[in-house]
């Protein structure tokens, strides 16, 4: 019996280790803490393996465990995140579907090619600087390719909240990367004249 359990766990859950590690890394922001979190996640998952419904999204199930463990750790004060007020009144300008950066780059780099020139470390720094709610949504959608429904179920919020977190998270991230690109000269301030 026990050997069966171990075998099915190793067959179904373990292949997701890399993905859980990537998620843990974005949650904790450190390789050491991510490794610890991955171990805790898989131990917890193994002990609860009979609660997992075979054939359902194992990766989502592991991510849920991972995130819950992380949030519990955070409560104990390991990482201080900005608290976001999701009920804050929507500011017309920043919530417009028309991205304010589109007009900012219109004359220089309308297709956002500057994003490709930003070094990896700087992109990671910007992701890690997001409040956890936004960061999780962006990571699950843009990096793990999960659907709105999957993210909503994983994080246990309505789909509308997922969409608004993605919107705000992406805008903040773009703003941070844009500012970095301007400061470092990756994105020139003057319009291109090479046409």
């Amino acid at each position: 019996m026990d050997a069966d359990k171990r075998a099915s766990f190793e067959r179904e859950a373990l292949p997701h280790m890399d993905a859980v590690y990537r998620f843990a890394l974005r949650l904790t922001g450190s390789a050491d803490q991510a490794q610890d979190l991955v171990q805790d996640t898989f131990l917890r998952a193994f002990r609860s393996w009979d609660q997992y419904t075979p054939g359902t999204q194992c990766k989502s199930w592991l991510f849920t465990i991972c995130r819950n463990l992380y949030l519990r750790q955070r409560e104990r004060g390991q990482r201080h995140d900005e608290i976001v007020d999701e009920n804050a009144p929507r500011d017309q300008g920043s919530e417009s579907p028309v991205n304010p950066l589109w007009s900012a780059v219109e004359g220089t780099d309308p297709e956002g090619e500057f994003f490709a020139s930003i070094v990896d470390a700087e992109v990671l720094k910007a992701i890690d600087a997001l409040p956890e709610e936004y960061r999780t949504a962006v990571v699950l959608s843009d990096l793990e390719g999960m659907s709105y429904d999957e993210i909503a179920a994983l994080v246990d919020v309505p789909v509308g909240t997922v969409k608004s977190r993605l919107f705000r998270g992406r805008r903040r991230l773009q703003q941070a990367l844009y500012e970095y690109a301007v400061e470092t000269g990756v994105l020139g301030a003057s319009p291109r004249t090479d046409e």
């Binding site: 994003f115 990896d120 992109v123």
Partner: peptide
Amino acid sequence: PHVRFEESFRAALKRAT
């Protein structure tokens, strides 16, 4: 260009990780 802008942004996130 707006579609491309958002795609460039997403590509950068993927590449960095």
